[in-house]
Design a protein around this nucleic acid. Sequence first.
DNA 1: GCCAACGTTGGC
DNA 2: GCCAACGTTGGC
Length: 152
Amino acid sequence: MNYWLMKSEPDVFGIDHLKAMPKKTEHWDGVRNYQARNMMRDEMKKGDQVFFYHSNCKEPGIVGIAEVVKEGYPDFTAWNPESKYYDPKSTEETPRWFMVDIKFKRKLKRTITLTELKHQPGLEEMALVRRGNRLSIMPVRKQEWTLILGLE
DNA sequence: GCCAACGTTGGC
DNA sequence: GCCAACGTTGGC
């Protein structure tokens, strides 16, 4: 089993939005970055665990846990001219963008803030705390996952 | 709201 | 294929 971290802006789609979805599940559409796409298309597997991270907000940090329930499939919002994620270069025959479905598992008892993660020994290698990192999806090592959960 | 970092685009 | 310009991300 693998571990991941996915960023989302709480004003747009936060952990509570996910929890409120039917079946507490939502497809992760709108990712238009190749590295992140490759992870969703090729590497994220059913049952993988996901840290749900709130970005671009007052208190950026990890707020909950979700699980991959559907593996990579084409992001259909790219085919919809009405969508803000529309990309004419992506077609049904040769889809360019992919997504997975994730399901809400639980909220953390508290937000584990970015500041805290930055100062936590053992997490230096995490992409999240490295300067200038803008990836919206990133792998988390098992030992990092365990360490972070221990901070809760 | 500012701005650094970084990815993408497009002219050449 | 280089690289400047531009757009976006996201912390602060």
